[in-house]
Amino acid sequence: MILLSTNAQNIFWLGRYLTRIQYLCSQFPFKNNTSALDYAHAFCLPAFDASSLNEMILDSEQPASFHQQFQNAKNNIYDLRGVISAQSFAELNQLLQQAEKNAGFICDVCDECNDVLEAEEDELLFLFFSLGQKMEQLDRQIRLKQTSVQTLHALDGLIERLDQQGMASLPDAWGELKKQPDSMRYYHFSDHIDSLFEMVRL
């Protein structure tokens, strides 16, 4: 299957949102003020200690909250109806309904949604979903000054596979980022990712 550019973007951003929520779930609730401030500063959030950051994450009106991030993921899933298999969509829809009935299930539901999507057999779906996951991980690792060796290695394999699909606009920018993973090169590479979607056609 060859995806429409909008569908490729949807599956890419779905990978990013689910990964973002999963990491936030692994950190919440923040207990250490220093760690909370590091996270808040890295993502430009107006929190001043662990307590205020936790309140923000639980405030459904805040863009960085569990609720808003989950809504973004949910919208991407609904936009992919007809692209992912009918069985996967039915499973995802059931999971989404569970989380809508009880927001406390969001973390578990995101893990299960991730498992469903990783089981999809279409190679392009898998590639763009995995690309979204790894780009989100690398973004966070650069922002928080975490080790990124494993993520860079995984991305290297994905870029090679995309190149084999005829999407040759990535390797040069990727080479620069791989040599020196910093914010400037990350955003430069992200721009190439955006242009890559224009190459994806039905």
Rank of each mutant, 00 (worst) to 15 (best):
F66S: 04
R81N: 12
D172R: 13
L155K: 08
Q150D: 12
F28P: 05
G104S: 07
Q165A: 10
Q97G: 04
F70S: 03
R143D: 00
G15E: 01
P171D: 06
A64G: 06
S5E: 09
S5M: 09
P171N: 09
S183I: 10
Q87C: 00
E121I: 13
F89R: 06
L177S: 02
G175E: 10
R140M: 15
A119V: 02
R185K: 13
Q150G: 07
G132L: 00
H192T: 05
G104K: 05
M167E: 06
H192W: 08
F126V: 08
F105A: 14
L37H: 07
R185A: 04
H188W: 07
E61Q: 15
Q71K: 12
I84F: 03
T6Q: 11
A103T: 10
D122T: 11
M56N: 09
N7M: 08
I193L: 09
D49I: 01
H188G: 02
L202E: 13
Y39R: 05
A86L: 07
I142N: 05
S60Y: 09
S5D: 06
R143Y: 11
F189R: 03
R16G: 01
I21P: 01
N75Q: 13
F12T: 02
F89K: 06
T147H: 08
L45F: 00
L131M: 13
Q180G: 08
D49V: 01
D122R: 10
L37M: 15
E112A: 12
A173Y: 11
S35M: 10
A119R: 14
S65L: 08
S35R: 13
E61I: 02
A119W: 07
Q22T: 07
L202A: 13
I77N: 04
L196E: 01
T147C: 07
S35Y: 11
D163G: 15
N7K: 13
E55N: 15
Q180W: 08
W174Q: 01
T151F: 03
A173L: 13
E55D: 14
L196D: 06
A42F: 04
D191P: 01
L96M: 15
Y23D: 06
E160M: 11
F70R: 00
F28H: 10
W174Y: 15
G104V: 05
H188V: 14
Q97M: 12
R161N: 10
K74Y: 09
A47S: 10
R20C: 05
D191T: 11
L138H: 00
C113K: 04
R81Q: 15
G166Q: 09
L58A: 08
H41T: 15
C107R: 01
A73R: 04
C44W: 02
A99E: 03
L14S: 02
S148D: 13
L196N: 02
I142H: 00
L158W: 08
